[in-house]
Amino acid sequence: MIGTWRVLEHHLMVYRRTWKGGMFVSFASPILFLAAMGIGLGSLIARGPVRTVGGVSYLAFLAPGLLAATAMQTAFVEETYPIMAKLQWLRTYDGMLATPLTIGNLLGGEIGWLAVRQAITAITFFIVLVIFGTVSSVAAVLMIPVAVLNGLAFGLPIMAFSATQRKDKGFPVIGRFIITPLFLLGGVFFPIQRLPQLAQVIAWLTPLAHSVALARSLAIGGSNGSAAIHLAVPATYVVVGIAAAGITLRRRLVQ
């Protein structure tokens, strides 16, 4: 437990040196998306025949989904190249394993750090949403833990995958074939019900659709399926991801 905290302490020490650059992106990205899609596209929708999406303005519909999807993208960014660097390019993990720290400590520290990182991004995003005036209920603050869970649900399996890679060629493939399609089609920009039946089934098998649905119901009310299932699916990805990462990290680092 102490060892896990030591690894997390290291991450925080590095973050203290690098946070400023990331902070700008954390604010700029949601502002750009909400302005362009929410306000820009949203004003067209408001003038069109439908006027609202799911009973609210397009901006209010979009914002919770974007919050959850940002967690997915943060997971992708944090758990691909940085993990490769620590495994192979800078060999940070080898350095750590020459001390009393164990693989379990490394993994625990990474999980803790990913949760912290996700929380920072989600809180930043939430602040932007408050500024845009899309937060109308106290319950909406619960979108933050929902986003963190979604970030872990994507991050841990991706970390497990990264630990199997010797080159970085696999990462753009994940980006193109999983992250980007889910971002565009996973219920963030329009209701999943608009998708063909098969695509709907696939979408509901991913953590993103559930996290988007849950975040949206927290933000604008209205039930969209069972909250328990919306939590259970991402949680399953987290548990499986931890187990898988434990195996792949051990295989990679202890020979």
């Binding site: 020490m13 590095v14 690098t18 800078l90 060999r91 940070t92 080898d94 350095g95 020459a98």
Partner: peptide, 8 residues
């Protein structure tokens, strides 16, 4: 091979 922390 050195395993130093380049960010620190």
């Amino acid at each position: 091979a050195d395993t130093l922390d380049m960010e620190l």
